[in-house]
Design a protein around this nucleic acid. Structure first.
Lengths: 306, 306
DNA sequence: GCAACCCATGCCGAAAATGCATAGACTAAT
DNA sequence: ATTAGTCTATGCATTTTCGGCATGGGTTGC
């Protein structure tokens, strides 16, 4: 049994004639005749009485007609429903970033994106790398901009930003006004850090491990804004991406410095499920990002001349 | 969209794997892969996430799965339902006859038929030729044994019996003991007749019209049994098929005679819808009838020697 | 690093569907 | 009564579709 056959059957019943059914379906009459024969032979008995005045249903035909109608309706509905689901999906971008990214990158990016695609609903989430990856795997999220590296080979990763981590100090802090700070003095001051487990924190941990120096932890938090507030109130110093303090630096509300003889970078990259077909919004947002890349790549100015 | 594709889709979802679905359906894995691709391209988007651990449904897939399951169930049910209907039909014989036939032919015939086909439900109806034909046309009746001729070219007619009409009289009637009765004396006695419209009545009407003799109608009724009772009580004489009085003649409860120099016959034939496929019970009952034909062809004995 | 497994795909042969032409049956109208 | 028109069935040729085989690309697990 085949939906094509059911469609022909329905047409024949409704038109009361093989010939008219064939016209309606834009096929030859012989095709209709044959498919009806196949259907009847499959079901083991005639579905229609062929009389001179037109066809009428046998009891079996009546039974089949009810089912044929229902199946036709089911198919029509499911096709419609799926196309709606897809429209919705095409009109939806679920994106996530680490905490810093959500504050300093996504707003600008999505503002531009939204201007170009007003019909796309935007959903922005944040969370730890692990949590975001989990959401991506569950298809509850389309795209994320995360600090690399990303564990898991099922993810497509496109590295796109290299942000320098710089030391920030409160205006009255003893280290302030230094152009560079050596690792040892960094080690002697209490640090306000990202939470353990975050990639940026790992970078800092790795740095001190490489230097074989101890860390003094003043505090750990997940948000770069909290870190900044803590540093501003004199709780300690911190290593943060330059982009997070660029505005304050221009307003002279923060002092910053590089580590002596060394630069610390963290890498940011777009992350999405490898196996997935890429929905339009994803490719679009990547395109828009590439256009704006220079804006996000803000580098701390060189201090050699300062 | 195709039931085959839906079947494959269901199998893939349930097995969680293209390969295992292919095994279950006894086809190659490539066939499954292809049909799923066709389905997805028809619906305009992926139905499954192909991940390394197995396939999982996309939202569209979820939607389709519900419909696919329902369609599968619908088809299974309608096939079963139709096969039941057909079993029932194969085990059913709806047969009709004129009033006389139902009394003198069908009982013997169906007794024999039933002995050979105990599993066939028998339904016997009677009625006027017109009414029976209507039921045949509506497929509410399979077969009828009627007095010919049958109007309407949509009917298949097989003439099978020729019954002689004879005059019957009450034992004390003045015409009794005559071997033959001439048309004129027939015309002079009141007649108990079949109802107008019946084929047997038409035969009688035609006879008197041919002879250009008037008829004296004592009474009209539809049933040959009533006619016999009326004749027995002396209300008049009648022309009835010999078979209807054969038993009484043997028991000497009725006298009968031919019309002088003339024999009147009525023709009986099997009637069924021309266009219809012949169900087994019909061909069987026709076969059984042919076997027993001699029993029904009981002729009035010749009177020449009497 | 290698074997095992999974899905996708190019290619070919088999099967199915379709169209065309036409037969066969019937109707209706001249 | 004959004829023209209509409807379904069917033989034949063509096109389309489907399935299988072999294989490629990728991943997992030993």
């Amino acid at each position: 049994m085949d939906v094509r056959q059911l469609e022909m059957f329905r047409a024949v019943v409704e038109e009361g004639s093989f010939t008219r059914a064939a016209l309606r379906l834009h096929v030859s009459q012989s095709a209709v005749s044959r498919q009806l024969q196949l259907l009847e032979s499959e079901l083991g008995g005639p579905l229609l009485h062929r009389s001179v005045k037109g066809v009428t249903l046998t009891p079996e035909g009546e039974v089949l007609l009810r089912t044929a109608n229902r199946i036709e309706r089911d198919i029509r509905e499911v096709v419609w429903e799926i196309s709606e689901t897809q429209k919705l999906k095409r009109g939806q971008l679920r994106i996530a970033g680490g905490g810093t990214v959500c504050l300093y990158v996504l707003p600008k990016l999505l503002k531009r994106f939204h201007a170009q695609h007003k019909d796309v609903d935007l959903l922005v989430k944040t969370g730890s790398t692990i949590a975001v990856l989990q959401l991506l795997r569950n298809h509850q999220l389309d795209l994320a901009l995360l600090t690399l590296p990303i564990p898991g080979a099922d993810m497509e990763v496109r590295s796109v930003l290299r942000e320098e981590l710089v030391v920030i100090t409160a205006p009255k802090h003893p280290l302030t006004l230094r152009k560079t700070i050596d690792a040892r003095s960094l080690s002697e001051h209490p640090l306000v850090l990202f939470e353990p487990g975050s990639n940026t924190r790992m970078l800092v941990d790795q740095f001190f491990a490489d230097q074989q120096l101890p860390m003094t932890v003043a505090m750990e938090t997940e948000s770069v804004e909290i870190i900044k507030a803590m540093v501003a109130s004199g709780l300690g110093i911190a290593l943060v991406p330059y982009v997070a303090i660029a505005a304050e630096v221009r307003a002279r509300r923060f002092a910053w410095a590089r580590i002596h003889g060394q630069r610390l970078y963290r890498e940011q990259g777009w992350v999405y499920l490898k196996s997935d077909y890429l929905p339009r919004p994803i490719v679009e947002v990547l395109r828009v990002f590439d256009e704006m890349k220079s804006e996000f790549g803000e580098k701390p100015p060189s201090r050699k001349v300062t």
